[in-house]
Design a protein around this nucleic acid. Sequence first.
DNA 1: CATGAATGAGACTTCATTCAT
DNA 2: AATGAATGAAGTCTCATTCAT
Lengths: 200, 200, 200, 200
Amino acid sequence: MKPLSPSAERICVIAITHFAERGYDASSLNDIAVAAGMRKPSLYAHFASKDALFDAAWSMALASEQIYVESCFSEMADDETAGKRYTQLLCQRYQESPSLRFLLRTAFFPPVELRPIVSVGFEAYLERMSELFSASLVKSYPLLPGTEVAMFKDAYIAVIDSLHVELIYGNPQVFERRLSALWRMLGDSLKLATGEVGHG
Amino acid sequence: MKPLSPSAERICVIAITHFAERGYDASSLNDIAVAAGMRKPSLYAHFASKDALFDAAWSMALASEQIYVESCFSEMADDETAGKRYTQLLCQRYQESPSLRFLLRTAFFPPVELRPIVSVGFEAYLERMSELFSASLVKSYPLLPGTEVAMFKDAYIAVIDSLHVELIYGNPQVFERRLSALWRMLGDSLKLATGEVGHG
Amino acid sequence: MKPLSPSAERICVIAITHFAERGYDASSLNDIAVAAGMRKPSLYAHFASKDALFDAAWSMALASEQIYVESCFSEMADDETAGKRYTQLLCQRYQESPSLRFLLRTAFFPPVELRPIVSVGFEAYLERMSELFSASLVKSYPLLPGTEVAMFKDAYIAVIDSLHVELIYGNPQVFERRLSALWRMLGDSLKLATGEVGHG
Amino acid sequence: MKPLSPSAERICVIAITHFAERGYDASSLNDIAVAAGMRKPSLYAHFASKDALFDAAWSMALASEQIYVESCFSEMADDETAGKRYTQLLCQRYQESPSLRFLLRTAFFPPVELRPIVSVGFEAYLERMSELFSASLVKSYPLLPGTEVAMFKDAYIAVIDSLHVELIYGNPQVFERRLSALWRMLGDSLKLATGEVGHG
DNA sequence: CATGAATGAGACTTCATTCAT
DNA sequence: AATGAATGAAGTCTCATTCAT
């Protein structure tokens, strides 16, 4: 994982948008090269192969989104519902961040030969998110039993994935309805689970 | 949508598994033809182009899953929680039905030039599912206000999509946990929404 | 080793001349295709890869030369010195037969990945020649001890290889001098070995 | 033929092994550069082109083998059979000297555009060897007629070439048998040619 | 219906070479 | 003396498609 040269980084950024929009198979190195202001063979001065470029792009996108997630959760106000901020910003993030679009497309349907690399990275990404959520949850409801926390962790990731899908469908209005429906459910469940126990 | 000849149907079935596993771009007409026991050019006796084959495969898969969904909801017992049966069978269905795998992969990331066809069909598919769910919901809770029904419709599709994603990830154990977490939420929310009003 | 179609045979013949003149690495499928009156991708309707084409060309050239060798030895007159006719025709054969030129070039310096295939075939080719020689030798000198026959077999192949090299150098005049020098040696050695014993 | 810098010499040595093992076409400047501890463009600080590098490698290899041949013949004992020592050491020399392997490969199948350079050098190399042989032969058999000497010169080079081929085939056991068979022939011929005339 | 043969377009990749630094 | 970056040419190979048979 040595750091990339500036040119290599630029290529990576472009590759990310191509992979995000077209997928791995339908992305052409020629197009990526031209979009990066060079000719096809010049790519090979920076990356040994299409796979290697994909690897680098994957790492970069993953790192970028991981940082974003951290910042999202760390900026949380004390009285905020755990994990809500992230979901509220998600739609905008998706539209603004090719990295996120690339991440989702790739996590869902990775090129077969790169599946291992992809799934390891993405699972860590989701796992970190669920940890941030449950930490925040425990902070708000210290008395919540561990089994309940575990259940809500699963529920939160389920919610995230559901929102991801709606983002992919690409209808922002429906996204907002889904966001609200999911939080209604999650909120109700939390209410019942914590009742007088939690905040009280 | 004229009916397909037996040969054309066989080709479609094979194409569906290829598209499901590899995606449109990475599926080769040659492989499909050989898997169907013929040579590549023979495909053109049945379909005008790769796109046309995709179209037919898409229609067939959609029809197949629509029938399945109908049967799933129609066999529902009276005291069953609305839409639960479908989600419980989903994991097995996914593993057994290339059509469903094809549907999801394609709905999420359709080949650009076929996006319109795909999204129209898939939205109808989801819409029908949500109607079946809400009909069953209204039957169980006749007094539930319309706005609540609408909200639960959104929630149910959100749940389905979330489960879809977990199926794509491919870990059956996690699927079961997610399934239970989502129904816990949905159940809690229903409980609160209906209270004494509903079944009582 | 299924028989080749006429087109495939034509391509093979052309490939043989290309491989003979340029070697495997420097031969381009594009050039071969054009020389065969078609475009590059059309080759792949006949051969799965460059290696496969090479394989076929190798088999064809080997078979061709094996037949030639057989005919050469079978047409031998009774009072002829064993194996002489073949060496006398060799220069002309080399000039006329791309197969032989291909055989030698390839036997001497095969593409690394095809070395096994090549050496097996060529060793059989040489071995057959040495058997034909020794059979003819034994017929002329029935009393020659087995160890001597074995030695002359080695000597004959050594002579053949030496002539091959001179053919590759490409100077017909020098070839004739070498041919005569080698037969002088072989003849002298035979004279001493058989003496009054042989023809008696 | 200005003398090479130390770096250039080092590159040449490496190039010789690459050319010997792979041939001109299949040898990559990149590989050679890396093996020499530098990057491809750095080669151009030492050689103007691949051809120029080949030229230099060729000259170096030729010089190296010429020196070896001289030393081989000059160390000859008085009662030794002319030229025998060289052939006896040949197998070991071939295994130890990339230069010799390069020489043979290149002499047999030079890259087309370099054929003139190659053949001139190699013919001189063989010619020198045959002169050393005939000088030694004349020393042993002063009364041998000139025509006979000329014939034996041709025979000796023929023997050398035959041994070369066996070295290329790469079977040391067969090499020994061939070596002995060839000297049996050469010795018999010499015996008959000199008879009572020579040493006596 | 099926296919053998052909093909234009385009995929990834390697190569020898150049040039500014 | 060395190299990172770039590139035109060319390499092998795959693909969807067409057409005569």
